[in-house]
């Protein structure tokens, strides 16, 4: 018993807690094959099929374009499933309550999950970049490689907010189902699988309402392949989208805080 102790809690201790929590969450997900395999395999597989095998024209323009679109497709999964669904699951299993009675700073849990989603996104981005550079003839200035990677990794944030908004309102099972219903149709409708210019006009209009469309266009803008040039408009949309869904998530989060 140490009712009297010389030790004090320092900011380094707090930092350590944040980092360990994030590391633990990351490895938990990596070791969960039901999550990590599809999350890593689908974007790389699609990129391999549609970009490298069917789309390879030799110039590298299609494979470069698809880095932006499949990159966006790839980073959405850890945000929606690794973050949102896992919060719903842990809430359902009483783990969230356990995390709340330990002296974990209230935000550390969510922070850890966001960092984990970003780390996962980074792994996906690196896999796609390697495939593109080695097999797809993608050549970009270093500045653009880094800019694209940063955009995609930070691009998990709006989808983390969306995932959390769903996750705090639903059971684990339901949030997985709902997230899939958001993920796959939104990917298609945002032109992540098939470029939007092959879509009828009204579907192209619809796409502008979707966050995945804006992130893809933002990413393509970095590598000068955007369908339009309104870089700021996409950024503003994503920031507003993130704030709105964080607000929605926060209300649900507060509700599940009271057992």
């Amino acid at each position: 018993m140490n009712t009297v102790t010389a030790k004090h809690w320092s900011w380094q201790d707090t930092l350590g807690v944040y980092l360990r929590e994030a590391g633990f969450q990351f490895w938990e997900l990596v070791r969960m094959p039901g999550f990590s395999l599809p999350t890593l395999a689908f974007p790389t597989m699609f990129y391999l099929f549609f970009g490298l095998i069917f789309g390879h024209s030799g110039s590298g323009s299609i494979t470069t374009y698809m880095l932006g679109t499949y990159g966006t497709f790839g980073i959405m999964a850890p945000a929606l499933f690794g973050f949102g669904v896992s919060v719903a699951m842990e809430h359902e299993r009483g783990i969230l309550a356990l995390k709340r009675v330990v002296p974990l700073p209230p935000m550390a849990y969510l922070f850890a999950k966001v960092v984990m989603a970003m780390l996962f996104a980074l792994v996906i981005v690196i896999l796609l970049f390697v495939l593109g550079a080695v097999f797809g003839g993608v050549v970009l200035p270093r500045r653009e490689w880094l800019g694209l990677a940063a955009t995609l990794v930070l691009g998990t944030l709006p989808f983390c907010a969306l995932g959390l908004a769903v996750g705090v309102r639903t059971s684990g099972q339901a949030s997985a189902a709902i997230s899939n219903l958001i993920y796959l149709p939104m990917s298609f409708l945002s032109g992540l699988w098939v470029p939007l210019r092959f879509f009828p006009h009204w579907l192209q209009e619809l796409a502008t309402a979707l966050p995945a469309y804006h992130l893809a266009q933002l990413s393509l803008g970095i590598i000068h392949m955007s369908d339009n040039s309104s870089f700021q408009q996409h950024l503003v949309y994503l920031v507003v989208f993130t704030i709105v869904f964080l607000w929605i998530a926060q209300r649900g989060w507060r509700r599940i805080q009271d057992r």
Binding site: D13, R20, E28, R31, M32, R93, G94, I95, V101, P103
Partner: peptide
């Protein structure tokens, strides 16, 4: 200064017992 064992908490995941203990121990001062 407290510890709590909650009713109905379902532990799971692929982390090993010692890893989970290390994580939770790390929340405390001593």
């Amino acid at each position: 200064r407290i510890g709590a064992m909650l009713q109905g908490a379902q532990l799971g995941g692929h982390a090993r017992v010692h890893e989970m203990l290390a994580l939770y121990s790390g929340y405390y001062l001593d």
